[in-house]
Simulated assay, not measured.
Amino acid sequence: MEGKIMLEIAKRIDRGEKAALVTLTGVDGSSPGKSGSIMGVFFDHTTLGTIGGGNLEFQVINSAIEAMKIGENREFEFTLAAEGSLDMICGGKVRGYIKVFQRRRKLVIAGGGHLGVDLYKLGKYLNMYTVIIDDREEYVNEERFPEADELLCGDIGEILKNYSLDEGSYLVIVTRGHLGDKDALKAVVGRKIAYAGMIGSRKKVVESYRDLMDEGVDKEDLLKIYSPVGLDISNGDPAEIALGIMAEILQVKNNGTGKHMREVKVIIL
């Protein structure tokens, strides 16, 4: 069972889901669970394994869900007596640890052209869960993206409209044309997402924003989009543009300043 629990946790993390491992580190006296017992807890409230069941397990599951929400490990201790917090009569005491596993960040690339390929390579290098979306079969296949986690072919706007995106998702819109970019943006603007960027000249971006506002899209939501996308560090080559985009994504992900490290004052002894 322990092997199944660890494999399921690994599988969930690989899919970009949140997961936690609960371990009983100490048991004094009588308890439904034994020291060393483990249980996998997932953000959808499903579990695998057990630490003894009952109110103890119920409380620990809730604690694990809270720990996953804030992304922090935590310890727990419960007294299993009538006067204890769990109102149990086993008479023992249990201690344990909840390990929260950081999920893989998801990179969603809307557009499988040259820039999409370079973004995909950088995403895989950074161990991100990569998703490629395009409306052309020849631009979204295993030959072009051999290690992509998902390849989705069809109407890009419709796919994005129905695709699950959350605070662990980073979207880059680089379709084959201005209209495709705008349709993709319309499908995601206003949704809770870690990062959404769209390629385009400043003129094209302004035109897209105006069109979308005319269609009822909120201006404040549009201002949260990173567009034109990326940091100003490239010479215009697709590989360098992709690097500038990924640098911006990392800046957002890690709350970086984007400043040169040499600007940090160092005392030389």
Rank of each mutant, 00 (worst) to 15 (best):
V27T: 06
I89Q: 14
G244C: 07
I133C: 00
Y209D: 02
T79A: 14
Y170K: 02
A247S: 15
G197S: 01
A194D: 04
M198W: 05
G36V: 11
A10T: 12
M198H: 06
N235Q: 11
I249E: 03
N141M: 08
R210Q: 15
D149N: 08
D232C: 01
V41S: 09
G258S: 03
T175S: 15
L222I: 04
R262Y: 12
G258P: 06
D14M: 07
S164R: 13
L119H: 05
K265G: 04
I38G: 00
D232A: 11
F43H: 12
I156Q: 00
D134T: 11
G244V: 04
I233T: 10
V22H: 02
G113E: 02
V140W: 06
M1F: 10
D211P: 00
D135R: 12
I70D: 13
K203H: 09
Y170L: 03
Q59I: 09
L56Q: 07
I159G: 01
F78R: 06
K259C: 07
D135L: 08
L107T: 08
H45R: 15
I268P: 00
L250K: 11
T50I: 06
G154A: 03
V189I: 04
Q102I: 09
E66G: 10
L107N: 01
A247L: 11
D28A: 14
A196H: 06
V41C: 04
E57W: 02
L179C: 07
P238S: 00
L160Y: 05
E143H: 14
L222E: 02
L21G: 10
E143Q: 13
V22R: 03
I245T: 06
L243C: 04
E75N: 15
K34T: 12
G216E: 02
K265F: 12
R74F: 10
H260E: 11
E83T: 14
L179M: 13
S35N: 10
S37D: 15
L48F: 09
R12P: 04
E167N: 15
Y129W: 10
G84S: 05
V266H: 06
K224I: 08
V172H: 08
E263K: 13
L250M: 13
G157F: 05
E150P: 05
V266E: 00
H260V: 01
Y195C: 05
Y163I: 07
L185A: 07
R191K: 11
L115M: 07
D44V: 05
S201Q: 07
E66R: 14
S208T: 12
G29H: 01
K69H: 13
E72R: 15
D218V: 11
T47W: 01
I199E: 10
F101N: 05
R202N: 13
I38M: 15
E137T: 12
G52W: 03
L243D: 01
D214I: 01
Y120K: 02
I70R: 15
N255F: 12
D211G: 07
S164G: 00
G16K: 08
G53R: 05
S201N: 09
N255Y: 10
N255C: 12
G96E: 11
N254C: 11
L86E: 03
K11A: 14
T23K: 13
A148S: 05
M1R: 12
G49S: 06
K4C: 00
A110W: 03
G157Y: 04
E8A: 10
I193E: 02
M1T: 10
G190Q: 06
L151R: 00
G71T: 06
R95Y: 14
I61A: 07
K18P: 01
P146K: 00
G200D: 09
V229Y: 01
G113F: 01
G52H: 04
E147N: 09
